[in-house]
Amino acid sequence: MPRIWQRQRSQEALSGYFFMLPALFILSVFLVLPILSALILAFCKVQLLGEVRYQFTGIKNLLRMIADERVWIALKNTAEYVAIVVPIQTILALGLALILNTNIRGKKGFRIIFFMPTVTSSAVLTLIFMWIYNSDGLLNHILSFFNLPTYNWLGDPAIALKGIMLMNIWSTAPFFMVIYLAALQEIPASLYEAAQIDGANRWEQFFYITLPSLSPVTFFVIVMGIIGTFQLFDQSYIFSGGSGGPNNSTLTLVLLIYNYAFSNLDMGYALALTLMLAVVIMTVTLLQRTFFREEQVH
């Protein structure tokens, strides 16, 4: 801290708050205040249309949640989604990163191409994929060309969620690929040199050096993937026209919250659901942070 500035303490305090002012103002009005009001309103019945009325209902909203079949369907969809998407996208990301980390020519170009889906809006990607998933569309044509079974990707409840999964793997794997790529470049070359001297082959190097070195990143990627899954909204909303259909197969928690809030106008219950979602995500995040720290200590 420069001494000249330090001497003027009150001046420092003033400039400190001057620098912080915009952030403090916005964060308190649009982050802290909403969090506090969510905590309160989640235990109320809120009527907004016509006369605005708030009525404290205790834990009624929480009890309703347990009895609400659609909540369980949304959670089931999310679980299915996590179980399929997260491993595939993680492995795909790692594989692509490993290839791009070799001394192959033109890898920059490939990296730019691979990354395109990540920068494209989910609204656009969803529309493009709906067009491709059309029963008479490109994907089914390709499948039937290879004599594979074709599906009603948009209309069949057993398939619709798989369609969204496929699209999401496609669009998020490159993002994680870049994270892996950065981590790969940080592994000291000396480790590999030492291993080579010890006579380790490529596979051994991969399993004994690369993979352990990447484990904190892998953990990060998995947790980010899980959180992203819990927050899924745009794709399901556009795919199903807001309903989460066909037959609730694309229903996600955020979509359910949106529907309760803006179609059913049940703001209190929607907030209770939001609270539940927040608890789930925070638990996952905190788990990640604790694990992450431990990993770094080792």
Binding site: S135, D136, N140, N152, L154, G155, D156, P246
Partner: peptide, 8 residues
Amino acid sequence: AQASDVGA
């Protein structure tokens, strides 16, 4: 058939 069965 429903519309989505036939790509409509």
